[in-house]
Design a protein around this nucleic acid. Structure first.
Length: 884
RNA sequence: GCGGACGUGGUGGAACCGGUAGACACACAAGACUUAAAAUCUUGAGGGGGCAACCCCGUGCGGGUUCGAGUCCCGCCGUCCGCACCA
């Protein structure tokens, strides 16, 4: 920050706009007038603009500023366009950081959370966002989570929530389940303890029931980024294949295991099979291990193997022959060995595979290691049949069948059909040997968390009646305030009395569920709650059907799968279980925009410590720029540009920027230059540039106010050329800015505002009756165009122009179509595709006249070198190309 | 490994449907104002050649389609992102 400028002080030069002093004034004006309060009963078309609500982690960061600045531009613009806009804000307030803070301070998570909410709310207000604060919600409030508990019960009732035993990452020191992301090199990220795999009974939401629909409906989300839809499609992971039942050889199979089911997407390669493999946890493996201690040891080793990326890459394919033999479904005399293999996953398909080494790289690696047959069955297109063999690379594509008996010569697609038809017709023990089956990668959503600071799962466990839902009249199941946070583990579980209760069904002493819900449940329906946050039911059908779906949702790409997929599922699940009756929609967010991150240079002191940008001063410019640690005067290293983060200390505090430059400057900087979906680099120079523009607009409007025609003057009958040019520029900018805001291309909208500003500034020194009127008009347009982006400055300018209304209440002006097109156009003239001259001609000139004029041009004549024109291509108002 | 996106001046980037590449901004340079600086204003600028008019080259690289390609097609190279023992 340049020490010489002190915008916090009283204006020394009266023409300087003191943003930090004026912004709170206008914020108070908006508050008084309650202009951003959205009514649920309006005949105006609605527009629901939502940015992903923040986790109250302490203070807002620049990422928030960017996200909310974008949403606010869109919301304010839509208001100006006459929409009834809903633009709410709330807090994703449950979560582990609050509980960790409580452990560190030996206080309550709520204390920390609500203090953070208060701080961040003040900060957001200082940004001048057009938010309807009357709808504020915090997910940690019983007013919110009691409805979530009702939603849970209704899902349970519909069979969409259920309990099952599953394997989880268990941290033995912190006594809690950890998500896969929280396990680093096999150790808990907080405790450092070796994570154990534990079988626990957990609550699940049946997202898998919606696999097909969630995948298919992605096609309808045409206002979502292609990237996000693709990520979700991959995550859902649909594959088409067959479920095959293999008979096991009676002499070798364990008792009770007459058959083995496997899933395959390549039944066409069955004649290339050389072995079967099951996961270490597969029942067949367990049965075989009972009689074989060495196999039991191998299975234990497999289970211990981590599932991290590093583990998987370094892990070699390993297997153990169970001694069991299986009968090939297409040849009863063909027996294949059954292995236990470390690369087979229990929770995909059936946990068992048939391996075709010539057609799958893993199978090939495995076959080479254990000296199993490798029979090529697919000849890739273009390969020479005589010379074809499999070495160290499997042929996993399509082609022509070889070495495959009755399939030989068929394409892989035809072979799939042929095998499928045959195996569907064949029977084993009265059932078809093969059934076509669509398989999904998507698993059910485990929502149980062994934590305090989350929504309690409203269930009571009774020894007689089992898991009994808490009756709706007893909701909410409130978190006890007097939990203790002095040691790790679940404070609900060790609370002396909270979990004791009576069974709602039989009345006998029973125990409350002490797990709470994953916080992603909270954020899966908050957008619906915003439509009527006071409603006695979780969702008010009338309000929801008026406002939903969200018309524009904006947030980070990091939620491409998690939050956005959960919400798409949960919205379907709750509507299917009776909420929002009459809501005729399946998707909660009709348009999605994912914005880029805010990045900044990093700095390191001579001692190797990260330094805050505010702890560093600079010498020189460009390539010769060097940094010094201000406190010590020692040189500091300028490092790479990274996402702003606490760990690298490359943070700029929004409060400092707003206090020094004003919110408008910060907002303008965020919207300028970088396309919204890409990362933006926060630079001091960029902020200064934005700050200069704030002052420039103020100066120009101030100047225009004193020179231009009075507000409301009648339009002159005639405009001079200068006035007409300014009017054209203003109307074109209006039109362009509107379209670019609608398309969320804020950087381009900003550039168009700059262009108009340049024209405006050039016109100001001149004067005529027409020009004075045009200046008044252009000044009004300029103010209305910057209003969504720099709302405070817009108010200040609007007031300076002599109006006593609020700029925020002004309608977006209609651009005059007649002024959007010029009478005369300048078009380039090419000879053989190279630009040689340009031609300014009447917009509606006839092609013959254009051609004649073009051929007369000096540059054209020169380039033609006396040759005749073979052909003249005229694209009206675009280009002329003469082929010589 | 699979899937995807991107590659344009010193920098961020713009260019609707294939039609004047480099809008706009930052940084830079020169000038004006000033005792001086800041601020502000004016002007310049893709690279090369030329006094100039003007000419040649130019959107990662190599081909192609077209009157015309940053944009479309094929093949490379590079960067980034997502998923990943998914049968």
């Amino acid at each position: 920050m340049p020490p010489e400028s002190k915008p916090n002080d009283q204006n020394t030069a009266p023409e300087r706009y003191n943003a930090p002093a004026r912004e709170p004034y206008w914020q108070a004006k908006w508050d008084e007038a309650q202009i951003f309060k959205a009514g649920n009963n309006s005949s105006d078309p609605k527009c629901y603009v939502l940015e992903m609500f923040p986790y109250p982690s302490g203070r807002i960061h620049m990422g928030h500023v960017r996200n909310y600045a974008m949403g606010d531009v869109f919301a304010r613009y839509k208001r100006a366009k006459g929409f009834n806009v809903l633009h709410p804000m709330g807090w994703d307030a449950f979560g582990m950081p609050a509980e960790n803070a409580a452990i560190e301070r030996n206080s309550h998570p709520g204390t920390w959370t609500y203090a953070n909410i208060a701080t961040m709310k003040t900060q957001l207000k200082s940004m001048g966002l057009s938010l309807d604060w009357s709808r504020e919600i915090a997910t940690c409030g019983p007013d919110y989570y009691r409805h979530q508990q009702k939603l849970f019960l209704d899902l349970l009732n519909k069979g969409l929530a259920y309990r099952k035993s599953s394997k989880v990452n268990w941290d033995p020191v912190d006594h809690t389940v950890l998500a896969n992301e929280q396990v680093i090199d096999g150790r808990g990220w907080r405790s450092g303890a070796l994570v154990e795999s534990r079988e626990l009974t957990q609550w699940f939401f049946k997202i898998s029931q919606y696999s097909d629909e969630l995948l298919d409906a992605l096609g309808t989300l045409d206002k979502w980024p292609e990237k996000v839809r693709l990520m979700q499609a991959n995550w859902i992971g649909r594959s088409e294949g067959m479920l095959l039942t293999w008979a096991l050889d009676k002499k070798t199979a364990p008792n009770g295991h007459a058959t083995l089911d496997i899933y395959t997407t390549r039944p066409d390669t069955l004649f290339g099979a050389s072995f079967l493999a099951v996961a270490a946890d597969h029942p067949l493996a367990k049965a075989a291990a009972e009689k074989n201690p060495k196999l039991a040891t191998f299975c234990d080793e497999c289970r211990r193997m981590g599932t991290s990326v590093a583990d998987l890459e370094s892990a070699e394919k390993q297997g153990f022959d169970t001694g069991i033999r299986a009968v090939h479904p297409l040849d009863k005399d063909w027996l294949l060995p059954v292995y236990v293999a470390n690369f087979v996953l229990m929770d995909y398909g059936t946990g068992a595979i048939f391996a075709c080494p010539s057609g799958d790289q893993r199978d090939l690696d495995f076959a080479r290691k254990y000296k199993l047959p490798v029979v090529p069955v697919v000849l890739p297109a273009g390969a020479d049949a005589a010379a074809f063999s499999i070495k160290d690379k499997a042929a996993d594509g399509n082609g022509t069948m070889i070495n495959s008996r009755f399939l030989d010569g068929m394409t892989t697609t035809d072979a799939f059909e042929a095998v499928a038809k045959k195996l569907e017709a064949d029977t084993l023990g009265g059932r078809p040997v093969g059934v076509r089956k669509v398989n999904f990668r998507l698993r059910d959503w485990g929502i149980s968390r062994q934590r305090y600071w989350g929504c309690p799962i409203p269930i009571i466990h009774c020894e007689t009646c089992g898991a009994v839902p808490v009756p709706a009249k007893d909701l909410p199941v409130k978190l006890p305030d007097d939990a203790t946070f002095d040691k790790p583990g679940n404070p609900l579980d060790r609370h002396p009395t909270w979990k004791n209760c009576a069974c709602p069904s039989c009345g006998k002493p029973a125990r409350r569920e002490t797990d709470t819900m994953d916080t992603f449940v909270d954020s899966s329906w908050y957008y619906a709650r915003f439509t009527d946050p006071q409603s006695e039911t979780p969702i008010d059908p009338k309000a929801a059907s008026y406002w939903l779906p969200v018309d524009q949702y904006i947030g980070g790409i990091e939620h491409a799968i998690l939050h956005l997929l959960y919400s798409r599922f949960f919205f379907r699940a709750i509507t299917d279980s009776g909420h929002g009756t009459g809501l005729n929609m399946r998707e909660p967010f009709s348009a999605l925009f994912t914005q880029g991150m805010v990045t900044h240079e990093t700095y390191k002191s001579a001692a190797g410590k990260w330094l805050l940008p505010s702890e560093v001063s600079f010498k020189g410019e460009g390539d010769t720029r060097t940094a010094l640690e201000t406190a010590t005067g020692k040189p500091a290293a300028i490092g790479s540009i990274e996402k702003m983060s606490k760990s690298k200390k490359n943070l700029v505090d929004p409060d400092d920027i707003i206090a020094h430059w004003g919110a408008d400057c910060a907002r303008w900087f965020m919207l300028s230059d970088s396309p919204p979906e890409r990362d933006v680099i926060w630079t001091e120079a960029g902020v200064q540039g934005a700050g200069r523009f704030v002052q420039r607009v103020w100066r120009l409007i101030d100047d225009a106010a004193s020179k231009s025609a009075a507000p409301g003057s009648t339009m002159p009958a005639d405009f001079g050329d200068d006035a007409l040019a300014l009017r054209r520029a203003a109307h074109k900018a209006l039109d362009g800015v509107a379209r670019n805001i609608e398309g969320l291309r804020f950087n381009v909208a900003v550039a168009q505002i700059y262009e108009l500003t340049n024209e405006f500034s050039a016109a100001l020194p001149k004067s005529s009756q027409g020009l004075d009127w045009a200046i008044r008009e252009a000044a009004g347009f300029l103010v209305k165009m910057i209003a969504p982006m720099m709302p405070h400055l817009a108010e200040e300018c609007w007031s300076r122009l002599g109006y006593n209304t609020l700029a925020a209440n002004q309608a977006w002006p209609q651009a005059d179509p007649a002024l959007l097109v010029d009478d005369r156009v300048t078009i380039a003239v090419q000879v053989n595709g190279k630009r040689r001259d340009e031609l300014t001609i009447a917009r509606d000139a006839k092609n013959g006249d254009i051609e004649a004029a073009a051929l007369r041009l000096e540059g054209v004549v020169r380039a033609m070198e006396g040759r005749p024109a073979k052909k003249v291509i005229i694209v009206p108002q675009r280009i002329i190309n003469i082929v010589a």
